[in-house]
Amino acid sequence: MASVLIGLGGNQLRETPLPLLYETKQARLEREVQRIGAGQRAVGGAEAPASGPQVLTLEEFEAIRAGALILDARPEIFYRIGHVPGALSLPRKDFETAYAALGARLAEGRPLVVYCAGETCEDAELVRTALARLGHAQVQVFQGGWEEWQAAGRAEEKAP
């Protein structure tokens, strides 16, 4: 069937072809974390100990927003369309590249807050775990994410 040939053949022409065996998001991200870790220092076996609540409500998020570094875990295209003012893009799907690009910003010592599309998206929690594995001590998730932020009528920022 033509679609089998085009689907599988076309995939080989991609910059990074999708492997034929499926790997979960978690497994893919963990490999990226391992690669980053090998480059800087050994990745800790367990997450860095957390202080304070891991999951933030909208009110809690707003209370610490000014002093925190906010990270948007959604695919970059969504970040460009609109994000929480001041947030930086750290997409789960391009974690390794984006992490390297952010570089020193993450090491400023400010607490990190990650969010994704809404309450049920998984990207923020995956990125939080990855950051914790890379030795960032204080990483929290704004649970309501972009959906709640927008629904509450808060200010939005578009990518420059």
């Binding site: 069937m1 085009i6 689907g7 034929l20 065996l21 695919p75 799907k93």
Partner: peptide
């Protein structure tokens, strides 16, 4: 295709060996 493979996997219907081939072939079809 990565995102679609994750979607296919979320249905918990197919074994791992079939998820990515389906994710590549179905959209073309």
């Amino acid at each position: 295709p990565w995102a679609f493979a994750d979607s296919v996997a979320s249905f918990r219907l197919l074994p791992a060996v079939l998820i990515n081939p389906v994710a590549l072939i179905l959209p073309v079809l």
